[in-house]
């Protein structure tokens, strides 16, 4: 926008706006339709958040009143809430620790492949699972790992052991959540990194070869260096989503393994939808949203520090 003397700007801008409105009515109608959807289905529900400060669901409807932060104070006294908070962070931490580097390594490995039909073939199949729903992923791995009459039982018999009912075992459920997450999403991540590798200037490699760099040095100094900003951004996005851990856990776990797998939002589902303690469950949701937003803002700020530009 050009800077003009203050006195002249106001009226001309206003009339310009009006002209534009008349000329391009359709544009504003479209904006109105779309933003109405946002208003009703995104912003209006947010208003309901004030219920977190009431005792809705704990008392008869006629006696509902504001109780301040009582729900939030109660949260931290409830062992199940503390457990779900811990589980959320712990499972997310495991997923990042084990799952985050895998696509990076695999994209580098895939990039080293010279036999093109094998490379293309592998590229084609590795992200099939990404488009499957958690229900289908769960169904596949429940069938594979069933305790009797299954490939799982077959392997156990070969090893001379009693088959394990993996999905019903407290000790294994977190590991299974991490493993199925990798199974479903690692291929997709690999493709994203691979696409970024493709956009690295090929003359850099030519120059490096002239300088006598071997393949390992090329990978380290050019490919990985070229991926650095994408890695940082994806890492930040990933950390910002830590608390969103929900649908996978909801679909893949049963009450038998609730102890080690109950996360914040499955806890909110149980208290809010099944027990109808809506005020209390809203407090859980609000807590999750506030901590989640802080994580996003902090990580995004860090990204800006690191690379001068944020993700949003």
């Amino acid at each position: 926008m050009t800077v003009s003397p203050a006195g002249l700007e106001a009226p001309s801008r206003k009339s310009k706006l009006l002209d534009q409105f008349k000329m391009r009515k359709g544009l504003f109608v479209m904006l109105l339709i779309g933003m109405t959807w946002y208003l009703i289905f995104q912003f209006y529900p947010m208003v309901k958040v004030y219920w977190a400060f009431t005792n809705i669901g704990q008392v008869p409807p006629s006696k509902v009143s504001f109780i301040g932060f009582a729900n939030f104070i109660k949260l931290f006294k409830v062992a199940q809430f503390r457990r779900s908070l811990w589980n959320t962070f712990y499972i997310s931490f495991l997923k990042i620790l084990i799952g985050f580097p895998i696509p990076i390594i695999f994209s580098l490995l895939l990039n080293e492949m010279r036999i093109s039909f094998l490379k293309r073939g592998i590229q084609t199949v590795i992200y099939v699972p990404h488009f499957l729903s958690w229900v289908v992923v769960g169904a596949i791995w429940y069938i594979m790992l069933a305790p009797i009459n299954s490939p799982n039982a077959q392997v156990a018999a070969l090893l001379g052991k009693r088959p394990v009912f993996w999905w019903a075992a407290d000790r294994y459920i977190r590991g299974l959540l991490v493993a199925t997450d990798i199974w479903r999403n690692a291929g997709y991540g690999t493709i994203i990194y691979l696409a970024s590798i493709m956009s690295i200037d090929p003359t850099l490699y030519e120059a490096a070869i002239m300088d006598g760099a071997n393949r390992w040095q090329q990978t380290w100094h050019i490919t990985l260096a070229g991926l650095k900003s994408v890695i940082v951004i994806l890492f930040i996005l990933r950390v910002g989503k830590i608390l969103n851990l929900f649908k996978q856990v909801f679909v893949l776990t049963t009450p038998i393994v609730r102890g080690p797998s109950d996360v914040l939002m499955t806890y909110a589902y149980r208290t809010g939808i099944q027990q109808m303690q809506i005020g209390y469950a809203m407090a859980v949701s609000l807590f999750k949203a506030v901590v989640g937003l802080s994580l996003v803002l902090i990580t995004n700020w860090l990204a800006k520090k690191i690379k001068e530009e944020g993700v949003f």
């Binding site: 933003m35 309901k48 969103n244 809010g272 939808i273 809506i278």
Partner: peptide, 22 residues
Amino acid sequence: FFNFLVVLTIMINLGFLPKYLL
């Protein structure tokens, strides 16, 4: 401003409960 509103809905994620009530 409108674009900011859109991004805001990505950043603020209250989960299923408010939408269920709606």
